[in-house]
């Protein structure tokens, strides 16, 4: 999976074309896109096409719908697919709730502290996700530190490992930086004079947060939500090591199909379904959310801009169009 993050809304405005360069040069500007285009086609589009092809083939190479019917006729696979989308959404929301205060603290702190905090957020990426997930396995184990803590306080040990909660904890831990960093970006580029003026008008901090800071940070939050949703939905190590039977996600199914059962057509079909599911979920999110944030006030129900949902109604006066990251899965 690779993800292209859109530039922050205020950066990268193109100036007028330099004087004295004729239209000839401008006509060849597309040449500059060529390397990137090649990259995307060779490394993303072609494998995707192959995967779609493979998903319609059986072992002997004949065209079949069997991989898909197998996926959709088995209640187990259906449950795994819904669970995958559900966990991805839940992880995105939990990350938003946990990540916003952290991002706010980073954005508002003095430069030296900010560097330290940012390093703190990024540094887990230095350690492989596998090692971090292993650590959770140790922490959550029946004889692990969490359970001994519970026992010393007087509770009976509980099963933490191989539960949905364990998967969510692991995925949130892995995904949090993807939520924090985009929010820090938006908060750092916002005009804090509006906060000062809100304060000078006597607004309490809750009002400043809900009506000024959060709405301005929304583009960053949305980028974070999309990134975390896509990342968590593709999770494989975490559900494998922490989920057991109850927390299995589609990534585990796909990995097993490829590495253990040599069932590539089925793995491809599951991959196509997962990609489609993520894209549909994101489209649905955009459609449902279109314009609703901008008209939102605490205590007032959301109203779709212009009274209807839809794609174009996103821009609200006074706010630049939010930049949701386009994602290639």
């Amino acid at each position: 999976m690779s993800t292209a993050v859109a530039a922050p809304p205020h950066s990268g405005r193109a100036g007028p074309p330099p004087a004295g360069r004729g239209p000839r040069l401008r006509n060849r500007v597309w040449l500059l896109v060529l390397p990137a285009l090649l990259w995307v086609v060779v490394l993303h589009v072609l494998p995707l096409v192959t995967m779609v092809q493979e998903s319609f083939l059986d072992d002997a190479g004949a065209v079949t719908l069997g991989n898909y019917t197998r996926l959709f006729e088995n209640s187990g696979y259906l449950a795994v697919m819904w669970r995958t989308l559900g966990y991805a959404a839940a992880v995105a929301l939990i990350c938003a709730v946990l990540g916003f205060p952290l991002a706010y603290a980073i954005a508002r702190s003095r430069p030296r502290v900010r560097v330290l905090l940012t390093i703190g957020v990024i540094s887990p990426f230095v350690i492989s996700s596998l090692v971090r997930t292993f650590s959770w396995q140790v922490l959550l184990a029946r004889n692990g530190p969490l359970n001994s803590l519970l026992e010393t306080v007087g509770f009976a040990p509980v099963s933490l490992l191989f539960t949905p909660a364990a998967v969510l904890i692991g995925l949130v831990h892995l995904s949090l930086p993807l939520m924090v960093l985009p929010i820090v970006n938006t908060l750092r580029s916002m005009d804090w004079a509006v906060v000062r003026s809100a304060r000078s008008m006597g607004a309490p901090w809750t009002t400043i947060m809900t009506r000024v800071v959060v709405p301005i940070a929304l583009p960053g939050i949305e980028v974070g939500l999309v990134l975390v949703f896509v990342f968590a939905g593709a999770g494989f190590v975490t559900p494998y090591l922490l989920g057991g039977q109850d927390g299995a996600m589609l990534g585990v199914t796909i990995e097993a199909a490829v590495n253990r059962f040599a069932d590539w057509g089925f793995a491809a079909a599951a991959g196509v379904v997962m990609t489609t599911g993520v894209v549909v979920a994101l489209a649905l999110y955009r459609w449902l959310m279109a314009g609703r944030w901008s008209g939102w006030r605490p205590g007032r129900p959301w109203t779709p801009a212009g009274g209807r949902g839809g794609w174009p109604a996103r821009t609200a006066p006074g706010r630049p169009p939010p930049s949701v990251a386009p994602c290639t899965v």
């Binding site: 197998r70 088995n74 209640s75 187990g76 696979y77 449950a79 795994v80 039977q245 299995a248 199914t253 097993a256 199909a257 059962f261 069932d263 089925f266």
Partner: peptide
């Protein structure tokens, strides 16, 4: 049998 096991494991 392996395909059946694979399906069983997901269910």
């Amino acid at each position: 049998t392996t395909a059946r096991f694979q399906d069983w494991l997901a269910g």
